[in-house]
């Protein structure tokens, strides 16, 4: 369990003071995948580096499994870091070492015997699926392969925590998915707590259990991923969620305007549904019960690590009272309904 209490981090130089983090209080549970999302400069990187003591807080405490980092000597912090793996956006592999040697690197630092080093490194190469590449140099690998080496290297000392610093930001969408699946597998099979920072909401949605949204050094929203996705409260969160929905706003706006001309008596409604409600024949039922016509404008489904979340944008056509009734009926289902545009 990782507890951050009253954390502040201020950088001072000749030009002045810069508050990178302002009062962070947070608990990350053992075995969970916790995501920090925010735009660059929000303080995510600093926060991540507080957890392995690469940065020390100006105020407040970082406690990992009841051990307070600031109480430890430099040597003890280094020892502690061996149980916290870290992966990076640009992989940060040593070009001078082969895949096998890169993975053995943290084991050398932990003074593991050569025999054990090789054995462990080979196991990890197997785990990340790079068995045929153990003697390749990083320059001969693709981005996804490099990140797999990075992950294997981070796992070498059997860490209890894995820190991920934008680990998928330099990868293409498909490779990102592969790396995320690997992280999920590691979390499940090895029971490693994963703390990741990202600016891609998609990453959070796909693998995180809980998320904290950061903006200018503060956590502005925090909670289970599904809740945050369904009901984003803070403006920054809303922007992230919207960005992830990938609804092409301009295109939809055009479609809505067109339909409004064609059917001026229609309401534009967005329906958000999740999990079991995906299976309900909501549209047909509402249409049948109230006698309205329903035009489907746009629909999408996204999967989070536990359930699917869907979005449907429809146009409800009919007389005013019928439309009113239809809306009420929609709201009686376990879905979220938002009227985007009222009929003229």
């Amino acid at each position: 369990m990782i507890v951050l209490e009253g954390i502040k981090k201020t950088y001072e130089n000749k030009k002045g003071r810069f508050e990178a983090l302002k009062t962070i209080d947070l608990t990350i549970k053992k075995g969970e995948i916790f995501g920090f999302v925010g735009y660059s400069g929000a303080g995510k990187s600093t926060l991540l580096r507080l957890i392995n003591g690469l940065e020390l807080p100006s105020q407040g405490t970082v406690t990992i499994d009841n051990k307070e980092l600031s109480d430890l000597s430099k040597r003890a912090i280094r020892k502690e870091r061996q149980s916290i793996g870290m992966i990076f956006q640009h992989f940060n592999l040593l070009w001078s070492r082969t895949v096998l040697e890169n993975i053995m690197f943290p084991l050398e630092i932990a003074n593991v015997t050569k025999e054990k080093r090789i054995k462990k490194a080979k196991e990890l190469i197997e785990l990340v699926g790079l068995s045929d590449k153990e003697n390749a140099y990083p320059s001969q690998l693709s981005g996804g392969e490099k990140q797999r080496v990075g992950i294997a290297r981070a796992l070498a000392n059997d860490p209890k925590v894995l820190l991920s610093d934008e680990a998928t930001s330099a990868l293409d969408p498909q490779t990102t998915d592969e790396v995320l699946k690997l992280l999920e597998k590691i979390n499940k099979e090895l029971n490693v707590t994963i703390i990741l920072i990202t600016h891609e909401m998609e990453v959070v949605r796909k693998i995180c259990h809980r998320v904290a949204v950061m903006d200018s050094g503060e956590i502005v929203e925090e909670g289970p991923v599904l809740d945050v996705f369904k009901q984003p409260k803070h403006m920054v969160t809303k922007r992230f969620v919207k960005q992830d929905r990938k609804m092409d706003k301009k295109e939809m706006q055009e479609a809505m305007e067109e339909l409004q001309v064609l059917y001026p008596e229609g309401d534009m409604v967005q329906i958000l549904f999740q999990g079991s409600s995906v299976n309900l024949p909501i549209i047909t039922e509402v249409s049948r019960e109230t006698g309205v016509d329903i035009n489907i404008i746009q629909g999408s489904i996204q999967s989070t690590h536990e359930v699917s979340v869907g979005t449907l944008v429809v146009q409800v056509l009919g007389a005013r009272e019928k439309r009113q009734k239809a809306l009420e009926l929609f709201r009686s289902y376990p879905v979220e309904v938002e009227v985007l545009l009222n009929a003229k």
């Binding site: 392995n52 690469l54 280094r78 020892k79 502690e80 870091r81 061996q82 916290i84 870290m86 990076f88 640009h90 940060n92 592999l93 040593l94 070009w95 001078s96 070492r97 690197f105 943290p106 050398e108 630092i109 932990a110 290297r153 000392n157 820190l163």
Partner: peptide
């Protein structure tokens, strides 16, 4: 690469280890 140095530090490498295992081999 500063990132590689940071990676070594994140593994708990001491200053001397960073010099002998990162700086010298990486700038060889």
């Amino acid at each position: 690469d500063r990132g590689v140095v940071e990676a070594a530090e994140s593994m708990g490498a001491s200053k001397w280890e960073v010099i002998t295992k990162v700086y010298i081999p990486e700038s060889l």
